[in-house]
Computed example of a mutant assay.
Amino acid sequence: MTNPKSINQYRALFVSHLEGQIKLKEPENLYEPIIYILGLGGKRLRPVLTLMSAELFGSNTMNAMNAAMAVEMFHNFSLVHDDIMDDAPLRRGKTTVHEKWDINTGILSGDAMLIKSYQFFESYPLEVFKELTSLFSQTAIEVCEGQQYDVDFETREDVTILEYLKMIAYKTAVLVATAMKMGAIVANAPEKDADAIYDFGKNLGLAFQLQDDYLDAFGNPETFGKQVGGDIIENKKTFLFLKSLELGKKEQKEALMHLYSIKPEDSDTKVETVKTIFKESGAVEETKAAIHEYTERAFSALEMVNISKPNKLVLREFGKNLMGRTV
């Protein structure tokens, strides 16, 4: 068994492979936006998890590289389409694809990325191919369902915390879980271990998304890479918002409902007012507690995985580092 690599080593391996795979070809207006979005960087969290998971279960990184490419390609496809739906101006601190080109280009290049993500599985033996594509298709549908819930919630005033958690589980956490389980599948890990690593990834993904919600409101614009306060401007019913409604005083709830019913010219004042309500209602502390709870659930699932103690420690450290991020 080789010694596990650091996150940065996995990331460097993946980025090197990615750069070698992605080439500009005709028609350039289809492929240039794909190269652009894939080149914006980001944490490469999901492909790193696929490579790491495969290696911790006894395979090698190159064997898992196409599965990692599939998950990164799919993730970036979803970002291109989400940015169109959200009319987002920035992604990772740079202009979004539909703003840099146009909406039609964003739709078509995104479609091509979705198709290409499946092509990466074609290199695997039939049984592994079937397992990977079955898991991936289920996840892709759940991501779409999560996105639809997200859209629906914008116009609903009765969204519950449980519904919100289901939405972020589908929209974000299942892809993190799938990234890890694909590594286990590539390494021919026993089914119960593949399922346990999926649970680890799903709970870590929930903690990750709750932290993303928190950073969207309270992160540093220099390091966060997205528009801070974007969720508030878009009237997104995040965990912070729902907890404020649950815990806040009558006047806080009324102010929040009013602010979330408008799109004012002066969005800065709206963002600052809403953030004050988030803090004073106790929603910030509740959000931090939920982040901690899902991180602990992830670590409990990790205990069920039959890998060596040093390898478990690698994943535990990864989880801790992820939860200590500011970006």
Rank of each mutant, 00 (worst) to 15 (best):
D83W: 14
P221R: 09
S134Y: 08
A184S: 12
N235F: 04
T105S: 13
G39M: 03
L302N: 01
T50N: 14
V228H: 03
K263N: 10
V48R: 00
G282N: 08
L132Y: 12
T238W: 10
L13Q: 06
E127H: 04
Q148L: 05
N104W: 13
R325W: 01
T155M: 11
H292P: 04
T223L: 01
R11L: 15
S6V: 05
Q21D: 05
V174E: 09
D87N: 13
T95G: 07
V274P: 13
L114H: 12
E272Q: 15
T50Y: 12
G219D: 06
E293S: 13
I35N: 05
I197Y: 03
K226P: 07
H75Y: 02
D216K: 00
A217S: 12
I37Q: 01
L108A: 11
D150S: 05
D268H: 11
D87M: 12
Y198H: 15
V174P: 06
Y149E: 06
T273I: 06
D266F: 09
I262R: 07
E296P: 13
K250S: 10
L24V: 07
T178G: 11
D266K: 06
F208T: 04
V305G: 15
P4E: 03
P47G: 11
R91P: 13
V128G: 03
L162I: 03
N311V: 05
E142V: 04
Y198D: 10
P89R: 12
I37C: 06
N29E: 14
F14V: 13
P33S: 10
K94P: 10
A70Y: 02
K202Y: 01
L51N: 08
P33Y: 02
E127F: 03
I197W: 02
V80G: 01
T326F: 05
G20V: 05
Q9G: 14
D216E: 12
M182D: 07
L206G: 13
Y118Q: 11
E26V: 15
T139N: 04
D216M: 00
L132W: 12
A173I: 08
D87P: 10
R46V: 01
R316E: 00
L215S: 02
G42E: 00
H81G: 03
M1E: 08
F120H: 14
F129S: 10
Q148W: 02
K275M: 07
S109L: 06
S109V: 05
F136D: 09
K250F: 02
K320F: 02
M180L: 13
D231C: 07
D150F: 04
S267R: 15
G229M: 03
E26N: 14
R91Y: 04
M113N: 13
S261Q: 09
A64V: 06
P190D: 11
R325M: 11
P310T: 08
A177T: 07
M85H: 05
S6I: 05
K192E: 14
D213Q: 03
L215W: 00
L13N: 09
L45R: 00
V48E: 07
G229R: 00
H75W: 00
L206R: 14
V71N: 15
F299S: 11
M52P: 09
Q211D: 07
S300A: 10
A54D: 01
K5P: 01
V271K: 08
N220S: 13
E55G: 14
R325G: 09
S123L: 07
F318M: 02
V80T: 04
F77Y: 15
L256P: 06
S16K: 14
I84C: 11
F14D: 11
V143P: 00
S16H: 06
E26R: 15
R11T: 14
